[in-house]
Design a protein around this nucleic acid. Structure first.
Lengths: 110, 110
DNA sequence: CATATGGTTCAACTATATTCGAACCATGGA
DNA sequence: TCCATGGTTCGAATATAGTTGAACCATATG
């Protein structure tokens, strides 16, 4: 029996460091209604991307992947491999540290 | 909510009513660095548009007019005729009533 | 291994936003 | 009334963003 190589982190997608999160980019990422809805869902708790499929089955996976990319690159979400899935998490602490109160203001439903 | 903005009278340019201010539109309007800078300037106190000319003389007036339009239509600013000028004011009370804490979070420099 | 699953990336297209000169409009003052 | 000033609007070019199928990639499972 060969010893297996450690897992390749091939699908480790880039996330901005906390201090590199830019306000205008965050605002832009949240300025799309569908992306904002996605963020609200994830704010309720970490979600597998596949779970978001069920919520909006009308959106093709390539489109959804692009939406998540915009949010990830803005520093709003973290997207980590989890088995065959991806776990989406809101970067609450980072956003709160960088822009105190912003997330609450945006996520509060009125 | 005790603080009331002065009523919007028959201005020649349309402003959304408080309840019609949409979060995503506000976020979008603020997501441009130059527009955000303009908002920060106006947040310090009402400004004549001409005064903004001095701050960024590189920007043509048609471009600046368009920037103000985006902010006005989003409900971020009020733009009132004042003699031959226009007075730009942040719609603080309306924004605070609609999205509490948002403005503070966005305008706080970090 | 083969295959199904979950997701990314590519490429091409459509759609929306931005830019800015020029024309235009309104006001205040001489 | 004429003119200068401050600003809007138009129009056309450019730039950026969104959408999507198809191809591709990694992993889990049989």
């Amino acid at each position: 029996m060969d010893i297996e190589d450690p897992p390749i982190e091939a699908l480790d997608l880039p996330h901005p460091a906390r201090d590199d999160i830019a306000l205008t980019q965050v605002l832009f990422a949240l300025s799309d209604p569908v992306r904002l809805e996605l963020v609200r869902e994830i704010a309720a708790g970490p979600k597998e991307m596949a779970a978001c499929d069920a919520l909006r089955p009308d959106i093709p996976k390539s489109t959804r992947s692009h939406m998540v990319k915009v949010l990830r690159e803005a520093g709003v979400l973290r997207s980590e491999p989890l088995g065959r899935c991806r776990l989406l998490q809101l970067r609450r602490a980072d956003l709160e540290a960088r822009f105190p109160g912003l997330l609450d203001a945006v996520l509060t439903r009125s």
